[in-house]
Design a protein around this nucleic acid. Structure first.
Length: 425
DNA sequence: TCTGGGGTCCTAGGACCC
DNA sequence: TCTGGGGTCCTAGGACCC
């Protein structure tokens, strides 16, 4: 039987903040999304207060006074760097590792000799904790979906204490399935859980026994794969090389809605420049671009509209000037007056490696590409060294009205020389 | 007053072709 | 009255994930 482990950081963003500010330990803490909009990470104490994932800040603000809730703006530079440290430690524990998200990795245990890997899992927990300060949980199962499920129980059950190996005893899989609500299964969201309940399927165990035809009809091919995995048949295999992205998006909600063409134009220019920077970093070029903007869907008293337009590039490109130009003309084409815009973004689509593009008669010669390429590389290098926005396209004002709100951001302890913590002798 | 951002995969339906 | 069927490609939108 194949075995793999899912290692997941507990309350990751909160744990990162606590590493550098131990006084947050034991307190209810949330980390907020952009614009300080919703809670996207919660400490156990915050969960105990009944704060849901994604809960809007304005609904829980009263807890700041009533329950000493601490709410922090998100600090992605810190979380990204801490994540890399955790993943480096994990890589020393298994022959191959698949980094699944900023706070989770799958570890391939093929060839690991032990029958019971619980001790090994505890060692991971202790090492990551000691070397990075981040608490993690470990779930082990025969498929990714069952490893996920094991991880959830490892976190929940005081007896498991953060580590659970479902492969150690064949009877445990069934017990675990029975103890898991169908909506808590990886791949079963709100919609699918609703369909399951109507059909009398309430636990992961019920779902594993469900009729294939019904599953296919209610939840499609994806749902069927989830069911296979619950039955112990591995469908999702380990992928040690992260695949190239097919799309990249840069979008933001605005701190305050904007009206009129100019502020939206400025925002779109910024997003286009950022998106092009992202794909250059990944060594990709885009075949098409989409620009969009929409009004505030929570303001039903105001007229609603979504504008969007697509453009295909003559030749795939990562040149910021071409991408910004296409974004502006896309916005001009789709523009409608008289709305208050709350969010906008630029998507780059059909991303490919330039070397994978078949060349034709009309492809630009390599020499023609050299200059823009050098210009972009120089710009990216300066921005990397001096900070984002050091060199740009001269159209973005730092006090732009659409800039995001971030009132309670902690320092970039690990990625900015100015913010490195000082230890007093 | 205040409600995130960045992805993937699949499916349904329209356009078009033979 | 009767007025095909099947394949492919593309797009929009839905569902899920973290």
């Amino acid at each position: 039987m194949a075995r793999l482990a899912l290692v997941d950081c507990n309350n990751f963003y909160v744990s990162c903040e606590r590493t550098f500010n131990p006084s947050l330990e034991g307190k209810p803490v949330v980390v907020l999304s952009n614009n300080d909009g919703c809670a996207v990470a919660r400490s156990n104490e915050a969960k105990a207060l009944g704060i849901a994932m994604g809960e809007p800040m304005f609904k829980i603000r009263h807890l700041v006074d009533e329950a000493e809730l601490v709410a922090l703006s998100s600090n992605y530079a810190l979380y990204g760097d801490m994540s890399a440290r955790v993943m480096n430690v994990l890589a020393t524990f298994a022959p191959s590792i698949e980094v699944y998200s900023i706070d989770e990795s799958f570890l391939d245990l093929d060839g690991m000799p032990q029958a019971d890997l619980t001790d090994w899992a505890r060692q991971i927990r202790a090492t990551v904790r000691q070397w990075t300060g981040i608490p993690v949980s470990v779930g082990i199962g025969p498929t990714k979906t069952l490893a996920k499920l094991a991880n959830r129980l490892a976190k929940k059950s005081p007896k498991a204490d953060g580590a659970l190996d479902l492969t150690a005893n064949p009877a445990w899989v069934e017990t675990a399935l029975k103890r898991t609500e169908v909506g808590d299964v990886w791949g079963i969201g709100r919609q699918y859980a609703g369909h399951c309940h109507v059909a009398g399927i309430h636990s992961a165990y019920d779902l594993a026994l469900a009729n294939d035809g019904w599953v296919k009809k209610a939840m499609g091919a994806v749902g069927l794969r989830t069911v296979m995995e619950l039955r112990g048949i591995a469908v999702h295999t380990m992928e040690d090389e992260p695949a190239d992205k097919q799309t990249t998006c840069c979008s933001r909600s605005f701190g305050d809605s904007v009206t009129g063409f100019d502020p939206l134009h400025d925002a779109v220019v910024t997003f286009a420049a950022r998106a092009s920077e992202k794909i250059r970093k990944q060594g990709l070029v885009a075949g098409a671009l989409q620009v969009f903007a929409h009004t505030d869907r929570f303001r039903q008293d105001q007229p609603q509209h979504t504008l969007s337009s697509m453009a295909r590039f003559q030749h795939p490109t990562s040149d910021a000037r071409i991408i910004i130009g296409a974004a502006i003309s896309g916005l001009e084409r789709a523009w409608k007056d008289g709305f208050a815009w709350k969010k906008a973004g630029v998507l780059l689509l059909d991303l490919v490696r330039p070397e994978d593009i078949p060349r034709d008669l009309f492809s630009p010669a390599p020499a023609q590409n050299a200059k823009p390429k050098a210009l972009m590389a120089a710009m990216d290098a300066v921005n990397a060294k001096m900070g984002r926005g050091a060199v740009g396209f001269g159209m973005v004002k730092p006090e732009a009205p659409w800039r995001m709100r971030q009132d309670s951001k902690t320092p970039s302890y690990t990625t900015s020389w100015d913010d490195i913590p000082v230890v007093r002798a």
